[in-house]
Simulated scan of single mutants.
Amino acid sequence: MKRLEATFFNVVVDTAIESLTDRFKTLGEVRDRFGVLPNFQKLDDQALNNQCDNLCMTLSTGNESDIDGKELAVEVNNLPRLSSDDMTALELLTFIHKKHLEELYPNLWVALRIACTLSVTVASAERSFSKLKLIKTYLRSSMGQDRLSGLAIISINHEVSNEDITDDFANKKARKQTF
């Protein structure tokens, strides 16, 4: 039981904790960079200009940028009064689309589309538990604990090359004896 805990359980728990830490770090970075879009009504002019410039730098590669930060700040200041002060980026995007304001606010339109399509989740912890659940359910009746642990670690840590695993298995299970 202690070997199972050391070789499998602790590895899974460590992976889950690391994944959650990475997820919250990533979400915090995205909130810092794209936070101007849903919270622009609460910012003063100087903070709005600074955050729009930061978003412009985030959405640029080399000398090309998807948006112009100064124009984005002007567009946000000229946006008509919204029905709610706490609109999400998706609700704001839907509002602009329904009112056909895409051409009047092109930088805001592009920034909102990018913000709404970002993938910010790190789902390796969920994958780990899902893999274990699939392995345990499907092969439960004919599998020992060592095999379950080995398959789960191989499935979870798919970065390990299959050649190394195959060579290790072949060396352990070889029936030839050198005399």
Rank of each mutant, 00 (worst) to 15 (best):
N63W: 15
M87W: 02
I67Y: 01
N63K: 15
L108F: 02
F40C: 03
I165C: 05
S142Y: 11
L27R: 06
V120Y: 09
T166P: 03
N63P: 14
M143I: 01
S84N: 15
S142F: 14
V74P: 05
L48I: 01
K98M: 06
S161Y: 04
G28Y: 09
V36R: 01
N107L: 00
D32L: 02
K136I: 03
W109N: 06
S161L: 03
G150V: 03
L108I: 07
C52M: 08
E163T: 08
A115I: 05
V120D: 11
N157P: 06
I96L: 01
L93Y: 06
N50F: 06
F34H: 00
T121S: 14
S60E: 02
F179L: 14
Y105H: 02
N50R: 15
E71P: 01
A16T: 11
T94N: 13
F9R: 07
I153C: 08
A174D: 11
R81T: 13
D168Y: 15
K136G: 05
L82T: 11
S141Y: 11
R140K: 08
I153L: 11
R81E: 14
K136M: 04
M143W: 03
V36L: 12
H158T: 10
V74L: 15
Q41E: 09
T61E: 08
F9E: 14
V12F: 02
H97Q: 11
T58N: 01
I135W: 03
M1S: 10
S119L: 08
T88V: 01
K99D: 08
I67W: 01
N171S: 04
S19L: 06
I67R: 03
N50S: 13
N107T: 02
T94C: 09
